[in-house]
Amino acid sequence: MRGATGAAPPGTSLGMWAAIVGIFLFSWGPVLVRDNEFGALPFAFWRLVGAATWAVVALYLRGGRLDRRVLRHSLAGGVVFAINGATFFTAIKTTTIANAMVIGATAPIFLLWIAGRVFGERISPRVMLATPVAVAGVALVFLARPGGIGGGSRSGDVLAVVAMLAFAGYLGTSRLARNHLSALEYQAGWSTIAAVLMLPVALLSFDPLVVGDGRSWVVAAIMAVTAGLAHLMVNYSHRFVPLRAISLLNIAAPALAVVWAWFLFDEQLGGWQWLGVPLVVVSVAAVILDE
């Protein structure tokens, strides 16, 4: 994002680094929840409860309040994030992980339209080229896995599409909310709303809301902190980094998650996957340099 003089506005560099660190933290999510005894929807609920708790406490410690103004400007983000969480985790249970992740990776295609039409951002040729290349890289990473192609249900794939559109909506509404709220106010507001909305969804699932495994609670707590910090950093970056860049940076998270699983758990990567990961990394790097 450049000003009329060609110089980046103050805070742009810090905002980009916040987005990069946030996406890095997002990429650890699938690794942290490995072998967790929670069901998908109860885990999503408790993660939101934890994230909302520390954000609200931090907000009050800094002299802020979770008042009607904060909740009003956070409402849209909380609603679409709850929709994303419920549909994505359900899609994971009814279709293949590969299908869900590849469908989710197409979000930047819609976000480029939102960035141009809604926020008036200039979409450079580099970004236009990098986006389909990055999506293709994610497709290679997940569809090249054993059993990656097919095997899912049509209903699960439809839920994955809804989840992808909801996530695109979350990024767009978050950008609008940051015109009125600080990053911490918005974090406390949307996560509280999303946690409240996720409670009935979790209760209606076939999985118990409470488990007796202490390790699962520790993992949920870690995820509440890391995922919450990731959202806080990305939402902070909305004031300084174009939506087109943030949307493409998000593609790096699932690709990096595969790398962490290979490094920590010796999950094998096929030949096409070794091509897909560099495609994602190079595409994201091109967009970072473009900013």
Rank of each mutant, 00 (worst) to 15 (best):
L165P: 05
R154Y: 15
F142M: 04
V133S: 10
L171E: 11
V158P: 00
S155M: 11
A144C: 15
A183P: 01
G152V: 07
R175V: 06
T192C: 08
Y170R: 03
G169S: 11
A160V: 11
D157K: 05
L197E: 01
T173V: 09
M164Q: 11
P125S: 13
A144Y: 12
F142T: 02
W190K: 00
H180W: 09
A166K: 05
G151Y: 13
L129V: 15
G189W: 04
L181P: 04
S191E: 08
A160P: 03
A130R: 03
A130Y: 00
A160M: 13
L143W: 06
Y170F: 15
G150L: 07
V138R: 06
L197R: 01
T173Y: 07
Q187F: 08
T131Y: 01
G172Y: 03
R175A: 12
P132H: 13
F167A: 08
S153V: 01
L165F: 12
V141T: 07
L129A: 14
S174T: 15
L197G: 09
L140P: 02
A144G: 15
L171N: 09
V133D: 04
G148T: 06
L197P: 01
G156P: 02
G156F: 03
G148R: 02
R154D: 14
L165G: 11
R154W: 10
V162D: 11
S182P: 02
L176W: 00
N179W: 07
A144M: 09
Q187C: 12
A194T: 08
S182Q: 08
W190F: 13
L129P: 02
G137A: 04
V138W: 00
M128Y: 07
M164C: 14
P146H: 14
A188T: 06
V162L: 13
G151Q: 12
S182G: 13
A134N: 06
L129F: 09
P125L: 09
R145I: 09
S174I: 10
G169P: 02
S191G: 14
R175S: 10
G152I: 01
V161L: 06
G169V: 09
R175N: 10
S191W: 03
G156L: 03
Y186D: 12
G147T: 08
R178H: 09
L171K: 00
S174E: 14
A130F: 03
G151R: 11
A194S: 14
P125M: 08
S155H: 12
I149T: 14
G172I: 01
L143I: 02
A139C: 10
P125N: 11
I193M: 05
L143K: 05
G172R: 04
A160L: 13
G156E: 01
G137P: 00
R145K: 15
G189R: 00
A139D: 07
I193F: 03
G169D: 12
G189L: 05
M128E: 13
T173R: 01
G169H: 07
L176Y: 06
G150T: 10
L165T: 10
A139P: 00
E185C: 11
L159D: 00
A195N: 08
M164R: 05
A136R: 01
